[in-house]
Amino acid sequence: MKNYIIRRLLTLIPVLFGISVAIFLIMQLIPGDVVTGILGIEETPELRAMWEKRLGLDKPLVVQYINWISGVVRGDFGESFRTGAKVFPEILARFSISAELALLACIVAWIIALPLGVLSALKRNSISDRIVRIIALLGVSVPNFATATLLILFLALAFGYYSPIRYVSFLENPLVNLEIMLFPAIVMGGSMAGSVMRMTRSSLLEVLRQDFIKAVRAKGAPESVTIMRHAFKNASIPIVTLVGMQMGILMGGTVVIEQIFSIPGLGQYLLTGIFQRDYPIVQGTVLFMAFIYVFINLLVDIIYTYIDPRISYS
């Protein structure tokens, strides 16, 4: 197991290297650059040359890349072109916000999806199953920026409620923090719930068809034991996979939802970086998101071994 984890962490290196090259090159391809943004209409060739020299943009691309990546390896993601602030501490601070939101969204999704998914599998083809499947379809197909906007409008028009605009961290004031996080978490969790619900339903139905379920019943098991102890646990592997992947994506921050609810998470940071062509911010954030994604997938793979004894990595 330990060897496996070490091996998996080692494979992270080429993955992250590839991503770093890709994101570096993509940033060069986007039209417009940071200097244009900073100077605006006051741009003159002299001023431009001065700024490019200052930001290190006058050097060949390869040198720029090496300068950046050698810093990254040492844990220094560089400074923002605009503000001069260190990128890495900012990423960490914003990650904690995005991660909190992701966690809340997952909790919302589980609370909705798992009971409904189980219900829908057990009462297959009944009215309640149909209703659950329609909810799931909506969750999967309605884009969350639409639900988010509608929710904000609805709350404002029907109840005159606006969630606090200024972000407050959990440590500062947990209640206000949760108030801010609640609605974006509901929106994100709701759309996640759709696919989790579907996966729970189909995976549980698949297990319920298997021979050992009948054998468990033939031993005289109460239905609750058959379902929860045997069927659900066997059905949980694909659910864990799905939730892990979604978690990996959400942890990296969601650009749209954070923007709509003005939550200063990683997604918002990335977006600002892109608008201002602030290369160190974009490159650093994307690299960090990729790392989180791969890391969560590793966690999922480790969780498998606890669920299913047939899976072992030694």
Partner: peptide, 24 residues
Amino acid sequence: MRSIRGREIAMIFQEPMTSLDPIF
């Protein structure tokens, strides 16, 4: 019925490989 299943009437199945829960 549940009190009879497995206590007074027990059953053996065709496929032993799939008749036990793989994760216990």
